[in-house]
Design a protein around this nucleic acid. Structure first.
Length: 266
DNA sequence: ATGCCTATTATTAATAGA
């Protein structure tokens, strides 16, 4: 099963890119972020025509998340994180697909930091960590995929010194991410490629993509059941170079059907 | 220290992204 996460940066403005990518990459499960569209403007017909069932949680102008499943309908299990009934942002949606629980998240950016937006980021992170702890213990594969808006370590940024004043790299943001990992989650891409320079985002400024001036902020976190099934993963970097592309590239992992015998014995 | 670029929304400029 190939799972992908893609901050599409406008699901309607980038629809040709999204459809081309779905056709070429053929992921089985897709977590989308930054739909930038209300529910009624989600391009459900075009996505269905491409062969995908979908659930979505939209919002006017900003945010918005969706889960797509090739040849099937995702079975929705939650929309919105628990812990704050006054939170109006559409940043979390969750479904069961083929026995795997998939959480699709779009963590707040938090800039400028410090400030109220950064406070919101940390508060959202705290709610995520609390909820994630309850998911971790489930007796099935669990995958938390999305745009975490966190650069985990120096290895994950081109010139990390340029990011020290940014909410994505603030000590509090990195600490919250490490705290989440320490519950027992596996950062799939970093685990597969421990020493590689891997980026998932290149901004539109300063010719960043051509210079490979990127950061790694789109992540797959796996519980132990899912981690045992992890076989490969990476970033579909070419997509970032397409005409009218998002500033993020699709990031993907493959989960095998059954754990390898060696892993099972452990 | 700031703009750079791009999308959306509401009317040619503001806001957000990261």
């Amino acid at each position: 099963m190939k799972l992908a996460t893609y901050n599409v940066n406008g699901v309607n403005g980038r629809l040709p890119v999204l459809l081309r990518w779905l056709g070429e990459s053929e992921p089985d499960v897709v977590c989308l972020q930054e739909l930038k569209a209300p529910d009624e403007k989600f391009p459900a017909a075009a996505i269905e025509k491409a062969g995908y069932g979908a659930i979505w949680h939209g919002q006017k102008s900003w945010n918005g998340v969706a889960i797509l499943a090739r040849g099937r309908e995702p079975e929705e299990t939650r929309r919105g994180l628990p812990g704050d009934p006054d939170d109006t942002h559409s940043r979390y949606i969750e479904a069961v697909i083929d026995g795997t629980l998939i959480g699709c998240l779009y963590l707040p950016n938090g800039n400028p930091a410090p400030g109220p937006k950064f406070d919101y980021k940390l508060a959202w992170f705290k709610r995520l960590n609390k909820y994630a702890k309850s998911l971790l213990a489930r007796d099935e594969p669990v995958v938390l995929a999305g745009d975490y808006n966190v650069i985990p370590t120096d290895l994950d940024a081109y010139k990390p010194e340029r990011w020290v004043d940014d909410a994505l790299f603030f000590p509090e943001s990195r600490a919250a991410y490490q705290k989440l990992l320490s519950q027992g989650w596996t950062d799939a891409i970093r685990t597969l490629h421990p020493d590689e320079t891997i980026y998932t985002f290149w901004d539109y400024f300063r010719n960043a993509f051509a210079r490979n001036a990127g950061i790694r902020i789109d992540h797959f976190l796996l519980n132990a059941h899912a981690a045992r099934l992890l076989s490969k993963g990476g970033v579909e970097r070419d997509v970032r170079g397409w005409e009218k592309s998002s500033d993020h590239a699709p990031t993907w992992i493959s989960l095998t059907k059954k754990a390898k015998a060696r892993a099972r014995r452990k």
